[in-house]
Design a protein around this nucleic acid. Sequence first.
DNA 1: CCTTGACCTTCCAGTTACGGGAACCCCTAT
DNA 2: ATAGGGGTTCCCGTAACTGGAAGGTCAAGG
Lengths: 136, 136
Amino acid sequence: MNIKEAAARSDLPPKTIRYYEEIGLIAPQRDLNGYRRFAEADLHRLTFLSRARALGFSIEECRTLLALWADRSRASADVKRLAQGHLTAIEAKIADLKAMHDTLSGLVAACAGDGRPDCPILHRLAPENETQRSNG
Amino acid sequence: MNIKEAAARSDLPPKTIRYYEEIGLIAPQRDLNGYRRFAEADLHRLTFLSRARALGFSIEECRTLLALWADRSRASADVKRLAQGHLTAIEAKIADLKAMHDTLSGLVAACAGDGRPDCPILHRLAPENETQRSNG
DNA sequence: CCTTGACCTTCCAGTTACGGGAACCCCTAT
DNA sequence: ATAGGGGTTCCCGTAACTGGAAGGTCAAGG
């Protein structure tokens, strides 16, 4: 199949597929006219990549996962370690975002949001009031 | 003060401060020797930026916030709208990350993590099993 | 045979918000 | 004079693509 069908079936944009070839994640054959020809095996790799990316794995993590997937003698411990590391990173990001969210939602709630200039959000950001900070 | 002290007092790296000048967020004076000279007003802007960035506002949002802060006749509604938009974006990111987290933590828990090759994580990513997917 | 339109190709630039490092200048103390 | 610890500019690299330009290919229609 050509790139457009591979894109549709893997749920990845053609541009992304070309990029994945460029960085060596896939290596489809070429037709005489230069068009990429995707075999089922290529499509499987693309689908694998699509799902791994959807779970937030980085490209380099995906590269490792692909290698582990291809290695019939892999240890599941290696996969688990990688996934656990990613999971921990996700948890850290969530914690960061939740802290921002808590602070910001309080400020938004406290802001009148009318035509007057007084605003607790700006007040919180302004460096005059060093004392009443609690977070940030 | 010189850049190092401004950096220490605003809790921003010198590189970041130079970058902020380059993109027009600050405009410190220069000494005859070419060194940047930071007045208190510059430091206030840097501190404001430091806090806004810590709350996750993008550079362009910070630019707007600085303008609103400087505008004594602003409407708090404008600030609130911007903050609310950012808050919504944060909530969307948290939701995405939580979805990843839920899927991934289930898979990690299900993986034996021993020397055997069988692995539910890879199984979930592999495109053979189209049916038993529940989340992607 | 020619054209149109939908494909495909490569290549280059831009995105976000900086960080690293080179090459070089300035200032103070010894 | 020299050593060190400032400062400066400039350029490259990051992650993972996306957009767009310039141009080749292919099937269908007139």
